[in-house]
Design a protein around this nucleic acid. Structure first.
Length: 267
DNA sequence: AACTGACGCAACCGCAAAGTC
DNA sequence: AGACTTTGCGGTTGCGTCAGT
């Protein structure tokens, strides 16, 4: 597929992945992670280049990938985000949990671009006067049920912070992610601040208190089933729009070890 | 049934940014 | 500071599938 292979001279395999290769890659990453993509194929015993392994994992094998057709709401979100961000597919993908940049790019080129073109030729003179950023914001805030992760309501986004915690449920079958209201304070976390994250990582394995911007009330934000005997990874994203127009997005990844013991959290 | 053209999608490449030595 | 390596991103390609003829 694609252009002339770059790794052929190295004796590495190209083209579609077999289910056997998928199995090898998946179990290797579950066991050892993917610290070094270049070294990974050799360590895993795959005749592939690291780049190919990385792409296969990110676009197809990752456990948090959502399968199936894009919903109308997702397509609308892509269109609006594209208006706002342009061809920054990874940035768009970051706002659509479970969808990959490659997938979004494909959908854009095969469906949405054409649809948009048809739409603009038929409705050339009736565009909203509001800017694209506010369009995206209002859609996310007004229609949170269309996305598979929680969204703050427009009334509570900027008034307080929330403490989000991830913990094992009492029956040990579920990881419960919860948010609690907090007053707005100066402890707003900077996502680029290493000390914040390392502090989070140094907490014990059963409950990880993290301070996040306000996301919801005291109801659990989400619950993830744990397969007792397998290693699993969960991806979880949530975002909010502040009154001043700023957006904040957070990704929470939780990996359970063998026997269902969670390593909380892995960012 | 056979052919053909359009479309969808997985996978590749080149390049730039980030990280490391 | 600069060279080298690794990672991530966006653009592109071509195989497989399917509908139309």
């Amino acid at each position: 597929m694609g252009r002339a292979p770059c790794c052929e001279k190295m004796g590495l395999k190209k083209g579609p992945w077999t289910s056997e290769e998928d199995q090898i890659l998946t179990s290797f990453i579950h066991k050892y992670g993917h610290g070094n993509w270049r070294a990974l194929p050799k360590q895993a015993g795959l005749l592939r280049c690291g780049k190919s392994c990385r792409l296969r994992w990110i676009n197809y094998l990752r456990p948090d990938i959502k399968r199936g057709n894009f919903t109308r709401e997702e397509e609308e979100a892509i269109i609006k985000l594209h208006e706002m961000l342009g061809n920054r597919w990874s940035a768009i993908a970051a706002r659509l949990p479970g969808r990959t940049d490659n997938e979004i790019k494909n959908v854009w080129h095969t469906h949405l671009k054409k649809r948009l073109k048809d739409h603009t030729t038929t409705t050339s003179s009736t565009r909203s006067s509001s800017n694209s950023t506010s369009n995206v914001t209002s859609q996310f805030v007004d229609e949170p049920e269309n996305l598979n992760y929680p969204q703050p309501s427009s009334s509570d986004v900027s008034s307080s912070l929330t403490k989000v915690s991830a913990a094992l449920s009492t029956d040990q079958d579920t990881i419960v992610v919860k948010g609690e209201n907090m007053e707005l304070s100066e402890t707003f976390p900077d996502i680029d601040d290493d000390s914040f994250w390392s502090e989070a990582l140094s907490t014990d394995n059963s409950s990880v208190p993290l301070q996040f911007p306000k996301a919801s009330n005291d109801e659990p934000i989400s619950e993830f089933p744990i397969t007792k005997n397998d290693s699993e990874e969960f991806g979880f994203s949530f975002g909010l729009n502040m009154d001043d127009g700023m957006e904040f997005w957070y990704d929470l990844f939780i990996r359970t070890g063998h026997g269902g013991t969670p390593e909380l959290p892995e960012f």
